[in-house]
Design a protein around this nucleic acid. Sequence first.
DNA 1: ATTAAATAGTTTGATGTTAAGGTAAAATGG
DNA 2: CCATTTTACCTTAACATCAAACTATTTAAT
Lengths: 149, 149
Amino acid sequence: MGSRYRGSKSEARALSAVINLVRAGESVMGRLNGQFAGLAITQSQFSVLDAIFHLGPLSQRELGEKIFRTSGNVTMVVDNLERGGMVRRERDPGDRRRVAVRLTAKGKNTIRELLPRRVAAIRDEMAALSAAEQDELRRLCRKLGRQGG
Amino acid sequence: MGSRYRGSKSEARALSAVINLVRAGESVMGRLNGQFAGLAITQSQFSVLDAIFHLGPLSQRELGEKIFRTSGNVTMVVDNLERGGMVRRERDPGDRRRVAVRLTAKGKNTIRELLPRRVAAIRDEMAALSAAEQDELRRLCRKLGRQGG
DNA sequence: ATTAAATAGTTTGATGTTAAGGTAAAATGG
DNA sequence: CCATTTTACCTTAACATCAAACTATTTAAT
């Protein structure tokens, strides 16, 4: 997405907004994920632990919905978390297609330790904006996100 | 990043803003990349073609700067573009460490065809916001993006 | 000139990601 | 009950991504 497109004013405005939107998201997340450097955890893994921590055991389908990823992807992320001893898979006896993903003690400790740090880092990141600006950003982003589904 | 964190008001506000920011960026880009479905081109490849198209031949280091990716990543993306006949690598005779990445005729045709479509799609995406809102979104995102680097 | 440091690019290993296709189980409709 | 469809998960192939280690080349320091 170059910044040199010569078109209508409205196109230039939309282009610039999108570029900055995507860049802001990437750079904020990039800095937040710097927290995990060295720790044996990734952003996707954090998202999964976080979801289970707050919502209780979930099936992989539900996890995919929560973190907006495909089922194939959830399979791999849960694989890696399971290998690290963070979660346990439990086949649902009632519906044997389903697999409940549950936190282990280690997983619970990990997310309990990481969450406050993550929240603090987010607070710091957003400190660049006033409270009103944060609310406005949220409002605008919601309008955009809802768009296609 | 769950939405059930019980903390201070300022933390909840920051959290919600970040979640919606990242989600908006991902969902907008996801829909935009739907354009490429079926075409033999990915978002990263598009970014590289776009950068060279607008700025002229670039070294891989410069490309990495433009698209905010590591040099190892640029190597692979350029590999794939080169394999597809979109770009050509040319070793710089003055500094034999450098490689200039240049558009081929095919690459030039491709990006010339894709760019207007992409711009139109972006305009449509952003039509959910008024001009003033787009400008405000841009302003807020710039503030955030600048933060750490 | 010799050595040390910096730079450009590549490679490797691990993880993530999707799309497309496959298997098993459950639900649905005769 | 049986066939069909749907659902949940897994697998594969291709691409993306980073961090770290590596090669080749250039620049800087002595």
